[in-house]
Simulated assay, not measured.
Amino acid sequence: MAWDGREVQRVAGPGGVDVRAVRALVGDALAKGPPQVDVGDVDVITSEIATNARRYSASGRPGGGVWVVVLYAERRLRVEIQDDGGRRDGADDLGRGR
Rank of each mutant, 00 (worst) to 15 (best):
V19L: 05
G64E: 02
M1L: 15
D92H: 01
P35E: 15
A73I: 05
E80S: 14
G63C: 09
G33T: 09
V8E: 10
I45R: 14
G27Q: 12
D41L: 13
R54D: 09
W67R: 01
D28R: 14
T51D: 08
A58I: 01
A24G: 13
E7V: 15
V68K: 04
G13D: 06
D43N: 09
Q82G: 04
S47F: 05
A58V: 04
D18M: 07
D28L: 10
V68Q: 06
Q36L: 13
A58C: 10
V39N: 10
G85W: 01
A12S: 10
V17S: 03
R20V: 12
G5V: 10
V44R: 11
D18K: 02
E7G: 08
A31P: 12
R23S: 09
R98E: 02
D43C: 09
G85S: 02
L77P: 07
P14L: 05
R78N: 11
D41S: 15
D41V: 10
R20S: 15
G90A: 06
K32F: 13
S47E: 14
R54C: 07
R54E: 10
A53N: 06
M1G: 11
G95T: 02
V79S: 04
S47Y: 07
A73M: 10
R75L: 13
E48K: 15
D4K: 15
A24M: 13
D83T: 07
D92F: 00
A91Q: 08
A91L: 06
V68M: 05
Y72S: 07
I49W: 02
G90Q: 03
G13W: 00
W3Q: 12
R6Q: 05
D18C: 08
R61P: 08
D38A: 12
T51C: 08
I81N: 00
V42A: 12
G15H: 06
Q9F: 03
V19Q: 06
W67G: 00
R87C: 04
A21Y: 04
S57G: 11
V39K: 12
D4S: 11
E80I: 14
E74F: 14
I45W: 09
D89A: 01
I81L: 05
M1Y: 13
A12K: 01
E7F: 05
S59A: 07
V26Q: 03
A50N: 06
I49A: 03
G95Q: 01
V39M: 10
P62E: 11
E7I: 11
T51I: 08
G65L: 01
V8S: 08
